[in-house]
Design a protein around this nucleic acid. Structure first.
Lengths: 150, 150
DNA sequence: GGTTAGCATGACGTGAACGTCAACGTCAAG
DNA sequence: CTTGACGTTGACGTTCACGTCATGCTAACC
């Protein structure tokens, strides 16, 4: 009794991940996916689904499809080729470094936006009584300068 | 005595940030920068430089130029329009949420790659004596399955 | 004064990642 | 039996973010 794995049609899989069938065909065209066939029709197994998860996550972190393909290929490379693996190791490590730098960028962007949010909230909750207007505006200019010139 | 601010020519600024003059003109065309002019020639002030820093960081975190422009515009919006500011506040907050999600994606990607790196290093440092080959390979298959099916 | 370097403005080209449309096959429902 | 719903393969269109000329001005150097 062969345990029949869960399968997906192209539109099923597309719906689940909020993408289009066209995108799935495109990924296949670029060698990122290779679903089985039932006659002409594509049949996706959970292996394919798992790869798709990695593909989409790769996209979200800003990798190109080619880069994603390279990673997936290295990932599934034959474990007996030491040279291959040594290369993969180097590439993975540099990829990690790049991602860490990107993480830093995101942290910085979040901080900048949070500062802006605080500035705006403070401004909105205070209807700005005239007496304080001048100094408040001066303060505000300073805050903005710090943000701009950083 | 007017304190003459530091200025940059287009190619100076381009060199500093490892981009091309064409890119700077493109950003200007899209309304992200608006340098002064000396005759025909563009003159960038430190304000422009600061904006450019934000632009490039925005790009690195995956924002489109249009999104970046919107943020910069909101950022520099006239502080007297309460409705405007309320809108900006909402947009900034949702942007922060999006960035936090993206950071999660990056953390996940880093973790996946680190696991792969560990797997590869273990494999490379052990020349795989025959006695252990079978079980090692079985372990490896498991590790890979966990990574794939996650 | 010719040449080089740097700047300008078009205008067309390009690669990535799909969208969109045409033309066709297929299978279950009414 | 014909209508939909779903699938297929081309092939062309589109958006983004520039790259790459072509052409021309201008200021500095030899």
């Amino acid at each position: 009794m062969t345990k029949s794995e869960r399968t997906y049609s192209i539109s099923e899989l597309a719906r689940e991940f909020a993408i289009t069938p066209r995108a799935l065909r495109f990924y296949e065209d670029k060698g990122l996916l290779s679903p089985r066939r039932d006659g002409m029709n594509r049949v996706y197994l959970s292996r394919d689904r798992a790869r798709l998860v990695l593909i989409l996550r790769g996209k979200r972190v800003g990798l190109s499809l080619i880069e994603i393909k390279e990673i997936l290929d290295l990932y599934n490379a034959d474990e007996n080729h030491r040279l291959q693996n040594h290369l993969a190791l180097k590439k993975f490590k540099s990829r990690v470094v790049a991602l860490e730098e990107q993480r830093k960028d995101i942290d910085d962007a979040i901080e900048t936006l949070r500062d802006a949010v605080n500035r705006l909230e403070k401004q909105l909750e205070a209807p700005a009584p005239k007496a304080q207007v001048a100094s408040a505006r001066a303060y505000d200019r300073e805050a903005r300068k710090r943000l701009q010139d950083a």
